[in-house]
Design a protein around this nucleic acid. Structure first.
Lengths: 108, 108
DNA sequence: CATATAGATAACTTTGAAGTTACGAATATA
DNA sequence: TATATTCGTAACTTCAAAGTTATCTATATG
């Protein structure tokens, strides 16, 4: 891995990274503990962690030689806003449909 | 492009596909009209459309030799659910914090 | 009928994300 | 101090997504 800087959408496109985020909703993990939950090597996990931290999805607290990971809400904001935009689209569509139906009723 | 079958997260990881989805919140487009909005070739857009349709993000209605694209809510559902799961995580965390603070007040 | 337009698909190339192993640095422990 | 543990990074390989051009089909139009 070349530890690239990915946008929020690219970050969650990887199933392993989504799995890491899921694990972190259950508990805090250090890198080695995380790696135990995957087939891939520890360096691979380490790089995923780097990507997740850079994109603001997790926060890392170093204690001695260990690095403990916890979720960070920041990274999710862009995704939530994006989804919200489309939810708004559907809601407006529904509202327009409702208006049309009510108009029909009135003209009958 | 090898027109692969991608999961919902991989589908929206591509900026061009997100742009296509955005354009479709404004209007319905056929393939050529869409391609006019991008630097890439029409075949490239055509393949993105195939990916978006397969993943349930858009619906295509053929009229004559044209294929008109509109948004389809289905593809967004998985993403919405995923985001909601993490929102729930933050809410629980907030609630727990609230409980702790209230407990403190009571014991003071 | 001849030509133009809309689009799909095949074949190919390029690029970068994702993984690996090897190794070094820093911290903990016997 | 010697050893074990945790972790990051460099160097490398692999693979598939994303793009291209060329070509074909189908529909519309003069």
């Amino acid at each position: 891995m070349a530890t690239p800087t990915l946008d929020a959408f690219q970050v969650i496109a990887d199933p392993s990274r989504r799995q890491i985020l899921y694990l972190l909703t259950k508990d805090s993990y250090n890198i080695s503990n995380l790696a135990e939950n995957f087939e891939m090597s520890r360096p691979a996990v380490s790089k995923h962690i780097g990507i997740l931290e850079t994109a603001g999805f997790i926060t890392i607290k170093s204690i001695g030689r260990e690095r403990f990971c916890t979720l960070n809400q920041d990274g999710f904001t862009e995704l939530r806003n994006w989804i919200d935009h489309f939810d708004e689209f559907w809601n407006i569509k529904l509202k327009n449909l409702d208006t049309i139906l009510k108009g029909k009723k009135n003209s009958n």
